Amino acid sequence: MSYDNILLNKEDKVSTIIINRPESLNALNAQTIKEISSALEELNSDISCRVVVITGSGEKSFVAGADIKEFSDFGQEKAEELARNGHNTLFNKIENMTKPVIAAVNGFALGGGLELAMACHIRYASENAKLGLPEVTLGLIPGYGGTQRLPKLVGKGIANEMIFSAKMITAQKAKEIGLVNEVFPIEELLIKTKELANVIAHNSPMAISKAIRAVNLSDTDKGFEAEIKYFGEVFELDDKKEGVTAFIEKRKPNF
């Protein structure tokens, strides 16, 4: 499939989605959301792809936010539809992918851009990255999961401070509060992200898929039962047999 607003690169077991709207600092509009969603569906069904990396084009911006011009005249009904469609089309889809999705945050990650990064399973950032949820300065609130995912990552107090003040934070501050995993110079960001992706790609894809589901339920009362269920299920899978056999035979597993 061809895309207008994103680039899709497939390299061995790691695929990279590059949001490519540099003229608007890679802002998310409806078409871009749809294209990222389509690329994720393509990659989720591609058995050669083990890990997905999402980043922005250039060195200034991961995603500078949503394209406000698209919804500036919406009323309540259309606004609720916009948010619901965003969750269903993209943000929840990322979180529930059967393959790990890593955000390589290269610059501004604001509003919908930070919400996109937070939907990913892991976040690496460049030293020049600035992250924030500025919606209240427009008389809005985060609508693509910001009020839900941010408190889970950094705690309610810090989440409230970021949302209520609308202040941007540095990449280093984001690491200190647990919003991003690691921070690198901009020229090393994608290299380091792909290094991690390649480590993950050599582990059991079947086990990782089950682990994603269990982790996603970790803040609910279903988390422990989900872990027990998926722990049992992997014992019937070929990857478990290969992994245990390789361990006993003192060799690397071939997943």
Rank of each mutant, 00 (worst) to 15 (best):
V52G: 00
V53H: 06
I54Y: 02
T55V: 11
T55P: 07
T55S: 08
G56V: 12
S57Y: 14
E59M: 14
K60H: 14
K60F: 15
S61I: 13
S61R: 03
V63N: 01
A64S: 13
G65E: 05
D67V: 11
D67C: 14
D67I: 04
I68D: 05
F71K: 02
S72W: 10
D73N: 15
F74E: 05
F74Q: 05
F74W: 08
Q76W: 14
E77V: 14
E77W: 07
K78V: 12
E80W: 13
E80H: 13
L82G: 03
A83G: 10
N85Q: 11
G86F: 01
H87W: 11
H87D: 13
L90T: 05
F91R: 01
F91K: 00
N92C: 09
K93L: 14
E95G: 09
M97P: 06
T98Q: 11
K99S: 10
V101A: 06
I102H: 01
G107D: 03
G107A: 13
G111I: 04
G113T: 07
G113S: 08
L114G: 07
L114R: 02
M118K: 02
M118S: 09
C120E: 05
R123E: 03
R123H: 07
R123L: 12
R123T: 10
Y124T: 03
E127A: 07
N128V: 00
N128K: 04
A129F: 04
A129L: 05
K130T: 11
L131G: 05
G132D: 09
G132P: 11
P134G: 06
P134F: 03
E135M: 12
G139E: 12
G139P: 10
G139M: 12
L140W: 04
P142I: 08
Y144Q: 09
